Simulated assay, not measured.
Amino acid sequence: MPPSSSSSSILYILLCIPCRNLHQYRHGGAVHSFVLPPSTMKRAASMTTSYLSAQVQGSFYAAAGAPSVDMTTYDLPLERTIDEWTAVVQPPSSLREGGVFLRAKDSRGELFVDTLQFSIRRGGGLGLILTEIAGGREDGIGITIIEEILADGNSAGVGLVPGDSIVSLSVSTSNGNGDVQTTMVSTECMGYDATIDAITSLPPSTSSDDVVNLTVKRVRRQPRINVRLQYPPNSDEDDVTIELFAGENLRRAMLTRGIKLNDRLAKRFDSGGSGDCGSDGTCATCVVGVARGMELLSPMGQQEEQILSKKPRWRMACKTVVGYGMVEGNMTLQVNPRQW
């Protein structure tokens, strides 16, 4: 019996790509519906693997540098992931392709969508159970996620987690003359049936060593940095604590939270006059003293290091990223350190 797109049930499937064998069963429960403008369903296309690499390299936390912690620390439980997934329509522009893309609802700005890539052996099937959590549209648009990773399947232990949504798959095949062709299918924001159609359109496996490259999106919480701000003793300002997220620029983050940052009494480093340079890193009027948590900040650039060579505990807020390496923790900063 072919998979049904009935809105009264959630469908599961064990993927067995090499033999195109689809084992199905039903589980009662409502499908979460959502509304999008009519759109043409994405279809299979041949692309080079450079496209997949670009997706991973363009991930959310690029400003925070390469993660130095186990990112699974920031994963969400499956139940919350299901509640947070949504789809948005992105119009095309000169800088990006238009289409329908996964996002987190995240009304409080505490989550982000990460993009991850995994290589999985094809022989014997992937061993994944998929669930459609939104769909029922004629154009095939929906949201399909991984419900379970089978303990004895090829996907066990590779790093996939329930709640991940497969956004693309690619395989490489040889034509016998030594030429290798990479075929990719896009499955982002597809319902159950459309996802299965796309997956089974991949060229069949020809060797037990063949692998499929999965690109998935995952909802994660943003690492938090609790910052205690201390003002000069003569300012009559009470200490305050603010919460920042990894990857935020320190100057921008403090200004958007209403923090009085730039020292109006300070002389510019570059000209000796007054006024700030607007985050060019030349005036040093936005410096802060780091009493605790220096390890949570991005490394100094050459210019900043030269300007602050005699103040090793100072940082230019405009050139500093918090939560570097996606590390969370606690910091204490002294605002306007020249006045201490």
Rank of each mutant, 00 (worst) to 15 (best):
G65S: 04
D210L: 03
S174E: 13
G278E: 05
S172E: 15
W314D: 01
A44M: 05
V171E: 00
S172V: 13
P18V: 06
V100Q: 00
A246H: 01
V89C: 11
A317F: 08
G159M: 14
E243I: 10
Q306T: 13
I13Q: 06
L297E: 02
R264M: 06
D209E: 14
T187H: 04
G273N: 08
R268K: 14
F101R: 07
M41V: 11
L229N: 00
N336C: 09
L202G: 11
R108M: 12
G176R: 07
A62N: 04
R137Y: 10
G124L: 02
S168R: 15
G281F: 03
V69W: 00
I129M: 13
S279Y: 03
T115R: 02
L296R: 07
S59T: 05
P223G: 01
S4P: 10
M41K: 09
L308P: 10
G323E: 01
A44T: 07
E243P: 01
S9N: 12
K310M: 10
I82W: 02
P232C: 05
F34H: 12
K105W: 06
M71I: 11
Q222Y: 01
L95K: 13
A64W: 04
V89Y: 15
Q302F: 03
E84M: 00
E328W: 00
R220T: 01
L265C: 12
S7M: 13
K319A: 05
A45L: 13
D152F: 06
D280K: 09
K217Y: 04
R80H: 10
H27F: 07
E148N: 12
P233F: 08
R338M: 08
E305L: 00
R264K: 08
G281P: 03
Q181P: 04
A246W: 01
S59Y: 04
I307K: 04
S4W: 08
R228S: 15
R221Q: 15
S39G: 01
R26C: 14
R137Q: 14
L52M: 15
S53C: 06
P92H: 02
V167W: 00
A45Y: 08
R221S: 15
